[in-house]
Protein backbone atom coordinates (compact mmCIF):
# COMPACT_ATOMS: atom_id res chain seq x y z
CA UNK A 1 0.00 0.00 0.00
CA UNK A 2 2.64 2.48 1.07
CA UNK A 3 4.75 1.96 -2.02
CA UNK A 4 1.71 2.39 -4.24
CA UNK A 5 0.93 5.71 -2.62
CA UNK A 6 4.52 6.81 -2.90
CA UNK A 7 4.56 5.70 -6.49
CA UNK A 8 1.43 7.63 -7.30
CA UNK A 9 2.78 10.69 -5.56
CA UNK A 10 5.98 10.43 -7.60
CA UNK A 11 4.05 10.01 -10.81
CA UNK A 12 1.70 12.88 -10.11
CA UNK A 13 4.52 15.22 -9.18
CA UNK A 14 6.49 14.15 -12.23
CA UNK A 15 3.51 14.79 -14.47
CA UNK A 16 2.94 18.20 -12.89
CA UNK A 17 6.60 19.07 -13.31
CA UNK A 18 6.44 18.08 -16.95
CA UNK A 19 3.20 19.97 -17.46
CA UNK A 20 4.74 23.05 -15.89
CA UNK A 21 7.85 22.69 -18.01
CA UNK A 22 5.86 22.24 -21.20
CA UNK A 23 3.66 25.23 -20.35
CA UNK A 24 6.71 27.40 -19.68
CA UNK A 25 8.21 26.30 -22.98
CA UNK A 26 5.00 27.05 -24.84
CA UNK A 27 4.55 30.47 -23.28
CA UNK A 28 8.09 31.67 -23.98
CA UNK A 29 7.99 30.23 -27.48
CA UNK A 30 4.62 31.79 -28.25
CA UNK A 31 5.85 35.16 -27.04
CA UNK A 32 8.76 35.14 -29.44
CA UNK A 33 7.69 33.08 -32.39
CA UNK A 34 4.25 34.15 -33.45
CA UNK A 35 3.86 35.99 -36.71
CA UNK A 36 1.02 38.48 -36.63
CA UNK A 37 -0.81 39.43 -39.73
CA UNK A 38 -0.78 42.95 -41.19
CA UNK A 39 -1.79 44.79 -44.34
CA UNK A 40 0.26 47.42 -46.19
CA UNK A 41 -1.80 50.30 -44.73
CA UNK A 42 -0.96 49.28 -41.18
CA UNK A 43 2.76 49.14 -42.01
CA UNK A 44 2.76 52.50 -43.76
CA UNK A 45 0.78 54.13 -40.97
CA UNK A 46 3.47 53.12 -38.50
CA UNK A 47 1.19 50.83 -36.50
CA UNK A 48 3.84 48.13 -36.56
CA UNK A 49 7.33 48.37 -35.11
CA UNK A 50 10.30 47.35 -37.27
CA UNK A 51 12.00 44.02 -36.59
CA UNK A 52 8.86 42.12 -35.62
CA UNK A 53 8.00 38.99 -37.62
CA UNK A 54 4.89 39.56 -39.69
CA UNK A 55 2.80 38.07 -42.43
CA UNK A 56 1.98 40.76 -44.94
CA UNK A 57 -0.82 40.21 -47.42
CA UNK A 58 -1.67 42.27 -50.48
CA UNK A 59 -1.80 42.56 -54.24
CA UNK A 60 1.38 42.92 -56.30
CA UNK A 61 1.31 46.37 -57.95
CA UNK A 62 1.35 46.21 -61.77
CA UNK A 63 4.74 47.10 -63.22
CA UNK A 64 6.47 47.28 -59.84
CA UNK A 65 8.51 44.08 -60.01
CA UNK A 66 12.25 44.72 -60.36
CA UNK A 67 14.81 41.92 -60.54
CA UNK A 68 18.25 42.68 -59.17
CA UNK A 69 21.41 40.61 -59.13
CA UNK A 70 21.60 37.15 -57.52
CA UNK A 71 17.91 36.57 -57.10
CA UNK A 72 17.07 39.84 -55.41
CA UNK A 73 13.55 41.02 -56.20
CA UNK A 74 11.80 44.23 -55.24
CA UNK A 75 8.12 44.84 -55.77
CA UNK A 76 5.26 46.81 -54.25
CA UNK A 77 2.31 45.33 -52.40
CA UNK A 78 -0.92 47.23 -52.07
CA UNK A 79 -4.24 46.94 -50.28
CA UNK A 80 -5.57 49.70 -52.58
CA UNK A 81 -5.15 52.23 -49.78
CA UNK A 82 -1.42 52.26 -49.28
CA UNK A 83 1.48 50.42 -50.80
CA UNK A 84 4.82 49.29 -49.46
CA UNK A 85 8.06 48.14 -51.04
CA UNK A 86 8.98 44.50 -50.46
CA UNK A 87 12.48 43.12 -50.86
CA UNK A 88 13.04 39.38 -51.26
CA UNK A 89 15.98 37.22 -52.22
CA UNK A 90 15.09 33.90 -53.78
CA UNK A 91 12.89 32.21 -56.30
CA UNK A 92 9.39 33.60 -56.50
CA UNK A 93 6.59 31.04 -56.40
CA UNK A 94 5.33 29.76 -59.75
CA UNK A 95 2.13 31.74 -59.52
CA UNK A 96 3.66 35.05 -58.52
CA UNK A 97 2.19 37.54 -60.98
CA UNK A 98 1.58 41.25 -61.07
CA UNK A 99 -1.92 42.01 -59.86
CA UNK A 100 -2.08 38.72 -57.88
CA UNK A 101 -2.67 38.36 -54.16
CA UNK A 102 0.35 37.06 -52.28
CA UNK A 103 1.55 36.71 -48.70
CA UNK A 104 5.06 37.78 -47.67
CA UNK A 105 6.60 36.68 -44.38
CA UNK A 106 9.34 38.82 -42.91
CA UNK A 107 9.82 42.06 -41.03
CA UNK A 108 9.68 45.81 -41.48
CA UNK A 109 13.12 47.36 -41.90
CA UNK A 110 13.95 50.66 -40.16
CA UNK A 111 13.80 52.39 -43.58
CA UNK A 112 10.14 51.38 -43.91
CA UNK A 113 10.72 48.62 -46.43
CA UNK A 114 9.43 45.09 -45.87
CA UNK A 115 12.19 42.48 -45.95
CA UNK A 116 10.59 39.16 -46.81
CA UNK A 117 12.19 35.82 -46.04
CA UNK A 118 9.36 33.92 -47.68
CA UNK A 119 6.83 34.73 -50.38
CA UNK A 120 3.75 32.57 -50.76
CA UNK A 121 1.27 32.46 -53.61
CA UNK A 122 -1.45 29.88 -53.91
CA UNK A 123 -1.13 27.24 -56.61
CA UNK A 124 -4.48 28.10 -58.07
CA UNK A 125 -5.19 31.13 -60.15
CA UNK A 126 -8.76 31.57 -58.99
CA UNK A 127 -7.79 31.53 -55.34
CA UNK A 128 -7.30 34.56 -53.11
CA UNK A 129 -5.29 33.88 -49.94
CA UNK A 130 -7.55 34.69 -46.98
CA UNK A 131 -4.91 37.07 -45.65
CA UNK A 132 -5.03 39.12 -48.83
CA UNK A 133 -8.81 39.26 -48.70
CA UNK A 134 -8.51 40.37 -45.08
CA UNK A 135 -5.99 43.11 -45.95
CA UNK A 136 -8.24 44.47 -48.68
CA UNK A 137 -11.20 44.38 -46.37
CA UNK A 138 -9.37 46.22 -43.61
CA UNK A 139 -8.19 48.88 -46.06
CA UNK A 140 -11.72 49.23 -47.35
CA UNK A 141 -12.96 49.71 -43.83
CA UNK A 142 -10.28 52.33 -43.11
CA UNK A 143 -11.13 54.19 -46.32
CA UNK A 144 -14.77 54.34 -45.35
CA UNK A 145 -13.82 55.61 -41.90
CA UNK A 146 -11.65 58.33 -43.43
CA UNK A 147 -14.39 59.35 -45.82
CA UNK A 148 -16.83 59.57 -42.95
CA UNK A 149 -14.34 61.64 -40.92
CA UNK A 150 -13.44 64.18 -43.60
Amino acid sequence: MRTRKRQRFLLVSLSLLLLGGATALILTALEENIAFFAGPAELVNGQVEPGKRLRLGGLVVDGSVLHGANGEVRFHLTDELADIEVRYVGILPDLFREGQGIVAIGMLSPEGRFDASEVLAKHDEGYMPPEVAEALERANHLMRLQEAGS
Binding site: A22, L25, A29, E32, N33, I34, F36, F37, R55, E131
Partner: peptide
Protein backbone atom coordinates in the same frame (compact mmCIF):
# COMPACT_ATOMS: atom_id res chain seq x y z
CA UNK B 1 -10.53 37.81 -34.72
CA UNK B 2 -6.78 38.34 -34.84
CA UNK B 3 -4.92 36.39 -37.50
CA UNK B 4 -1.58 34.97 -36.46
CA UNK B 5 0.56 32.11 -37.58
CA UNK B 6 2.65 29.81 -35.45
CA UNK B 7 5.65 28.74 -37.43
CA UNK B 8 8.63 26.41 -37.20
CA UNK B 9 10.48 28.48 -34.55
CA UNK B 10 7.70 27.79 -32.05
CA UNK B 11 7.78 24.05 -32.66
CA UNK B 12 11.56 23.87 -32.62
CA UNK B 13 11.62 25.74 -29.32
CA UNK B 14 9.04 23.52 -27.64
CA UNK B 15 9.20 20.11 -29.31
CA UNK B 16 12.95 19.55 -29.30
CA UNK B 17 13.42 20.22 -25.55
CA UNK B 18 10.87 17.45 -24.90
Amino acid sequence: GEKISVGPPFFNATFIPL
